[in-house]
């Protein structure tokens, strides 16, 4: 799988990431780091625990990484959940978590194929 194909599959912006990171090798390296990051896991855990504050921080971190990686689709859903968590609205966050999970799994699956 090429990097461009990967970005198309996960709903990312290939051109943007290439202008910033310049080499596909570097993009692959950063994608590997993305899979190792535990923010998503922390987000799920904190929402289940009812810990809005830490859930907010996890969502915020995830959103920031998506901005850096130009994962547009996951950025959008993590941005929305970040904003409801900023307002400590755990109920809405729970409802939005499914979308985030779908988008996240799509990215992770894509990265696995990319690095395979």
């Amino acid at each position: 799988m090429t990097v461009q194909e990967f970005y198309e599959e996960v709903g990312g912006d290939y051109n943007e990431i290439m202008t910033r990171l310049r080499t596909e090798e570097r993009i692959r390296k950063f994608a590997g780091m993305f899979t190792r990051d535990e923010s998503y896991k922390a987000l799920v855990q904190c929402i289940n625990d009812g810990n809005a504050e830490d859930a907010f921080r996890a969502a915020h971190t995830m959103k920031g990484m998506c901005q850096n990686m130009a994962f547009t689709r996951l950025y959008q859903s993590s941005h929305e959940i970040t904003e409801v968590l900023r307002g400590k609205d755990l109920e809405s966050a729970k409802q939005m978590l499914d979308v985030v999970t779908t988008d996240y799994n799509l990215v992770i699956a894509g990265i696995e194929k990319l690095l395979a």
């Binding site: 390296k29 950063f30 780091m33 993305f34 190792r36 990051d37 921080r57 971190t61 920031g64 990686m69």
Partner: peptide, 9 residues
């Protein structure tokens, strides 16, 4: 930064 990826960037 708490995210490795962001630091690496």
């Amino acid at each position: 930064d708490d995210a490795e990826l962001n630091r690496e960037m």
